[in-house]
Design a protein around this nucleic acid. Structure first.
Length: 568
RNA sequence: UCGGGGGUCGUCUAACGGCAGGACAAGGGACUUUGGAUCCCUGUAUUGAGGUUCAAAUCCUCACCCCCGAGCCA
């Protein structure tokens, strides 16, 4: 905490901004986050807007939210609402500065006319295919369009007719007149306006020509007085064009700075591919808890604080990187460890009967809610002669260093008594484990004995008559490969989808206090992991999402043994 | 092929000519009424070759490797 206050986290972007202020290039700082409302925001966007909002914050400036809505065929209001909610949830606020590129369509049109008059833009009547041909390729220069030198008056008239709807889509475009020989494709007379007979979610049918990204973005920045326009590396070679338009127009010049976008292992970070997962039914929706979307992470139980801490730890640079999902999970655990109340829940129940516990007796034990936070207080837990423990916590034939229950072994039930396994009851037909018959030590009430004997294992449990039935959804990585997009030819990225990314457990038993917990609340199920109540829950029938498992040292030991055995 | 950008532990990232540091991951240990948390310890990196300099990850040259770019997408 105190650390992050004193630690001025810096990076090449903040250094550049500080320098711009020092040299007087700008006297204020304003940034913007410009999402296209064509899908849900994911953790990669969080990096982007953490930089946009974070830099503004650090330099006493402001960050605008501006929807980049220049393509009506892809954009929908549903997405603008979702994106706003998600940004707010992460913890950023744009005040009343909610803008749309479409707010500037009139101004942009005016400016386009200005460029035509300057002889810097022209209406091209080549077909889309011809334009592509004329553009040339990486090795060879492009060729100039035969329409490139139309007189200004003709261009003006044609452009007006484009606006008036006199052309079909693809019949004409407005192009900037720059340099068909340029090594930078973006400068080979880029298209500024195309015809789209589509109605727009904000401007309706007012327009049938829509500005391209390059023509809209820099000018929108300029209008808003944005000093620093951050974007990903993909726009690096658009910067000369960004600057060219601003310069031709002679308007306020923002500075574009590019950084490497975030990649996280075992997932994909692209609205297009995430949308495909939704459409093709690989996940239940944009907010499926396995999705790296903000909505998905929220439903999964991740906290905004954890996500922001993760952003701080990944840094900002220009190097392509693939951040290990384990780092995100570390921050989620780190945050939840501090704040999640501990409860007991048994995922795969195994019945335990305490044979020497008085018939029908019920006791209550006081349990600490969070050992990391005394102010979280305590709660009372019912205990009886019939309990559930985790199937995993019993082995008939225990391996070395097994601290849990086994025939003849004694363990502690958290907050309650020591029990010793006396008998294993199996189904005579199937041989399947039915229940354990154990004895308890009345002296061990509260978890310790007068003789101070050592019990290594402590198990979580739930009193059978008091238990609440729950559904628990266990999650694993969405993809089996760290970089699913890195496919060999002939392979498809969806073939790396993890078939075991979701496991639904029913008949789980949780402590009674959880019967009507409210959706979104997060808990640590003792010894298991963090779980968040899903909105699918109904009163008395909770559904939990596994947020992230606790570190499991024992699992690691066993895995290590297995590995060693296989190797020898 | 041309243009743009980038190469530091397994992974992210620091260093701004002066001891290559941190975090995650991995491995080991201590502690433990969560095999959680916490604490301690360990290993492993400057793409390569030259040059400048008392001193180079950092400056210069030349290689090599990786990413992006030929939408009327953003």
């Amino acid at each position: 905490m105190a650390e992050s206050d004193t630690n001025t986290t810096t990076d090449f972007i903040r250094e550049a901004v500080a320098e711009d202020l020092a040299t007087g290039r700008y006297t204020w700082v304003r940034t913007r986050f410009p999402p296209e409302p064509n899908g849900y925001l994911h953790i990669g966007h969080v990096k982007a807007f953490s930089i946009d909002f974070g830099v503004a914050e650090d330099f006493g400036g402001q960050c605008n939210l501006r929807f980049d809505d220049t393509n009506p065929v892809k954009e929908e209001v549903e997405y603008v609402e979702a994106q706003k909610e998600d940004i707010r949830w992460i913890g950023y606020d744009w005040g009343d500065r909610e803008y749309y590129a479409s707010d500037y369509f009139d101004q942009l049109y005016e400016w386009a006319v200005q460029l035509i008059k300057k002889g810097k833009a022209y209406v091209d009547s080549l077909s889309p295919e011809q334009i592509r041909e004329y553009r040339g390729g990486f090795g060879e220069p492009g060729r100039e369009s035969p329409y490139r030198d139309r007189p200004v008056e003709e261009n003006l008239a044609l452009f007006e007719r484009m606006r008036a709807g006199e052309f079909e889509e693809g019949e004409a475009v407005l192009r900037a007149k720059i340099d068909m020989q340029s090594g930078n494709m973006n400068l080979r007379d880029p298209v500024m306006y195309r015809i789209l007979h589509a109605s727009h979610h904000r401007t309706g049918d007012k327009w049938c020509i829509y500005p391209m990204y390059d023509w809209a973005h820099g000018q929108s920045d300029s209008i808003e007085g944005v000093t620093h326009s951050f974007c990903d590396l993909g726009y690096e070679d658009h910067r000369p064009l960004y600057n060219w338009f601003i310069e031709q127009l002679g308007i306020f010049a923002p500075r574009q700075i590019e950084f490497a976008r975030l990649n996280v292992s075992h997932t994909v970070l692209s609205k297009r591919f995430l949308g495909q997962l939704v459409q093709e039914g690989y996940v239940s929706g944009w907010d499926d808890p396995r999705m790296p979307t903000i909505a998905g992470m929220r439903r999964r139980g991740y906290t905004p604080e954890a996500i922001r801490a993760f952003m701080d730890s990944v840094g900002v640079a220009k190097k392509d990187s693939l951040v290990d999902m384990a780092l995100l999970e570390y921050h989620v655990r780190d945050d939840l460890n501090r704040r999640a109340p501990r409860v007991m829940g048994v995922l795969r129940p195994l019945k335990v009967v305490i044979t020497n516990y008085p018939q029908g007796k019920v006791e209550e034990f006081e349990a600490i809610n969070n050992p990391e936070d005394e102010s979280a207080g305590t709660r009372m837990l019912p205990f009886s002669g019939e309990l559930y423990i985790e199937q995993e916590d019993f082995r008939e034939d225990p391996p070395r260093k097994w601290f849990r229950l086994a025939p003849g072994a004694e363990v502690r039930l958290k907050h309650a008594y020591y029990i010793t396994c006396q008998e294993v009851v199996k189904d005579p037909q199937t041989g399947e484990l039915v229940e354990l018959r154990c004895t308890y030590d009345p002296e061990s009430r509260g978890g310790g004995t007068p003789d101070g004997r050592r019990v290594k294992g402590t198990l979580h449990w739930v009193s059978a008559p008091h238990a609440v039935d729950a559904e628990v959804r266990l999650y694993d990585r969405l993809f089996t490969e760290p970089d699913p997009m890195d496919v060999e030819e002939g392979e498809h990225w969806t073939s790396f989808l993890n078939p075991n990314s979701l496991e639904i457990l029913t008949g789980c038993k949780v402590e009674p206090g959880l019967a009507d917990a409210s959706p979104g609340s997060r808990y640590q199920f003792l010894r298991l992991g963090y779980f968040a109540l899903d909105p699918d829950s109904v009163p008395g029938k909770p559904v939990f999402n596994e947020t992230v498992a606790l570190r499991d040292t024992w699992a690691k030991i066993e895995e290590g043994r297995k590995g060693r055995r296989n190797r020898s």
